[in-house]
């Protein structure tokens, strides 16, 4: 009969090699030391940053809200956190890389199916169409959002003056192509230059603006200066930056993200919490500056103004 307290033979193969258990102890030891030093670090004084950050032209704008009552994002956040793949895919790196990008003088060529084509300097456009302040929500397809006080003029004013012909059905926009100043354009993975498009009635809608300024001042290079499009009810990638060419066309123009990934980035790209994107959830979003996600609004909260443009269209097909 075997005793309960009989010793069990241990095979040599069952014994953990010394180096294995020692290395685990090292791991735990280092973990302990680090946990301690982190606790200490937490007692140190706040804020080592904010030395000489550029300031907004009109700081009082930061106390304003959009029409839904949500506060405008800080100038710092708006100018230091955005996508601009022509410079880098790192949202934090854009401002630095774009710092010396020349945005003035800036010319936009307008052509295609119009009676009065031409080249326009942004300075002249601003004189002809005085910029208005437009506080818009910007909803990125990556499910983050901001409230931004733009300065700009409605695109319809310019389009009306160049007189689209009756064949014109779409508006095509092209960004600047300048790989020597835009490192991201030297990457082979994208069909540069950036291109976007709108249906003519979308382009003529009063919410659609060409922005030439931000926070009461100039449009910083990282935000799309010299001149950019802002279409607040569509995902941010539709609001093309650094525009050098606008063409009116009869056919739906190609757009950069649609060329890369057609099943994800449709031509319309209206903000729509009910039409799922294979990558990011479009049901909710994170407003920059907030922790919890908030529900995404149909047409980014502009349904009252723009829903009529899409009446009778299946938005699951035309996403």
């Amino acid at each position: 009969m075997t005793s309960l307290f009989q010793s069990v033979p241990v095979h040599p193969s069952e014994i953990t090699p010394k180096h294995v258990y020692l290395s685990r102890r090292d791991f735990i030891k280092v973990a302990g030391v680090l946990a301690g030093s982190m606790a200490l670090a937490a007692c140190a004084p706040q804020s080592l940053s904010s030395d000489s950050a550029p300031a907004p032209a009109d700081p009082s704008l930061s106390s304003k809200t959009d029409e839904l009552g949500d506060p405008v994002n800080s100038f710092e956040d708006i100018t230091n956190y955005n996508n601009y793949y022509e410079f880098t895919t790192d949202k934090r790196g854009v401002a630095q890389l774009a710092r010396d990008f020349p945005t003035s003088p800036w010319e936009v060529e307008i052509g295609g199916l119009v009676r009065k084509p031409g080249k326009f300097g942004v300075e002249d456009l601003v004189k002809k169409y005085p910029p208005e302040e437009r506080i818009y929500r910007l909803r990125c397809v990556e499910a983050w959002s901001m409230v931004i006080p733009w300065l700009g003029f409605p695109l319809w004013k310019l389009l009306k003056d160049v007189e689209p012909t009756s064949d014109a059905k779409y508006v095509s926009f092209t960004s600047i192509y300048k790989p020597e100043a835009m490192p991201g354009q030297r990457e082979p993975w994208y069909p540069w230059p950036y291109r976007e498009g709108l249906r003519l009635d979308e382009a003529m809608h009063d919410l659609t603006i060409l922005a030439t300024g931000l926070y009461g001042g100039e449009l910083p290079p990282q935000n799309g200066g010299g001149i950019r499009l802002v279409v607040p009810w569509k995902y941010g990638f539709k609001s093309i930056k650094a525009i050098v060419k606008i063409e009116l066309t009869a056919e739906q123009p190609p757009t950069l993200w649609n060329l890369i990934q057609p099943n994800e980035y449709g031509f319309y790209a209206n903000v729509n919490p009910n039409v799922d994107h294979p990558r990011w959830s479009q049901a909710t979003e994170r407003r920059i500056g907030e922790i919890a996600r908030r529900p995404t609004l149909m047409f980014n909260g502009y349904a009252g103004e723009v829903a009529a443009l899409y009446e009778g269209m299946d938005l699951r097909v035309y996403y």
Binding site: L34, M38, A41, A42, A44, S47, L48, S49, N73, E76, D77, N80, Y81, K91, R92, E142, W144, R286, I288, G289, I291
Partner: peptide, 20 residues
């Protein structure tokens, strides 16, 4: 991890620190 915690504490993790 140390660098991450330092960045968190100095608030240099972009405007969207959770994603960062």
């Amino acid at each position: 991890l140390i660098v991450l915690l330092l960045d968190l504490w100095r608030d240099t993790l972009t405007a969207n620190p959770i994603q960062a």
